[in-house]
């Protein structure tokens, strides 16, 4: 309960030219919870994700990651090999476009197995068994294991990306619009999958989405961003049902009711 957050950011500031992308942003994230970051395009949410995951350096501020032994590491002061090691085992990244992280000319099994092999797995039978297990968990037929991703539908590609990300049992996963660009029915299935897997594995997730409904279904907590600032943060249902900031009220009242 009072344990330290796995990821903590303080005073993140970054501007592109005169345009502020992040202004004094603080973030705390604990194991087992999903933090949804919502806001419209250009509000800085993807920039925040890239800064938190060490891919973009802030002009000021610090991001601290706490490893399984409890030691704190400054993400942007970490030696590159250590950051890379984190990114390929303890961390995961789910992109909106699965083609960005999948290898389209490598079979589904090879895609899932790559992170295992990058971490040193050298037993083909084990790698294949784990790949099969994960394909099953993301509801991809076992007999598709040797097929190339280019024969997969958009929803399958996204599920394959999730299998590839979670196969190393990461502690921290960054998701950038994971359900964007998918049909509504496919999206529902994916949301359920993400929710179930995250709950079972107990990982911490930073989820960037512009879709309030996705944030409500998946997020334990929510941070609303506008022009580089976090204007409101709290329990997801609190912020969405009782919004206080003018921008949050606008955002919530703009959602179409199905």
């Amino acid at each position: 309960m009072n344990d330290d957050p796995i990821l903590a950011a303080r005073g993140l500031t970054l501007s592109f030219g005169v345009i502020p992308a992040l202004l004094n942003v603080d973030v705390d994230l604990w194991l087992g919870e999903i933090l949804a970051i919502v806001g419209e395009s250009g509000s800085g949410k993807t920039t925040l994700l890239n800064v938190l995951s060490g891919q973009l350096r802030p002009q000021s501020g610090i991001v601290t990651y706490r490893d399984p032994e409890g030691a704190a590491h400054d993400v942007h002061a970490m030696p590159p090999p250590m950051l890379r090691t984190l990114q390929r085992s303890d961390w995961g990244f789910v992109h909106q476009d699965p083609r960005r992280s999948l290898r389209m000319n490598v079979s589904a099994g090879g895609n899932v197995g790559e992170r295992l092999m990058a971490r040193g797995a050298r037993h083909y039978g084990d790698i294949r068994a784990q790949a099969l297990d994960w394909l099953e968990q993301v509801e991809i037929d076992a007999d598709r294991i040797d097929d190339l991703p280019r024969t997969f539908s958009g929803g399958m590609l996204q599920r394959l990306q999730i299998a590839r990300t979670l196969v190393t049992h990461p502690r921290l996963v960054f998701m950038d619009e994971p359900t964007g660009g998918l049909d509504v029915s496919v999206q529902a299935r994916l949301l359920d999958l993400i929710r179930t897997l995250v709950a079972r594995l107990g990982v911490a997730v930073v989820l960037v989405t512009h879709d309030i409904a996705v944030a409500r279904l998946l997020g334990h907590r929510i941070a609303v961003m506008q022009r580089g600032r976090v204007v409101e943060t709290g329990l997801t249902d609190q912020v969405l049902d009782d919004p206080r900031h003018p921008y949050t009220q606008l955002l919530v009242s703009s959602v179409l009711q199905a």
């Binding site: 709290g234 329990l235 249902d237 609190q238 049902d241 009782d242 206080r244």
Partner: peptide, 9 residues
Amino acid sequence: LRSLYGNYR
């Protein structure tokens, strides 16, 4: 009721 639950602040 919602305030009791923490749904409203």
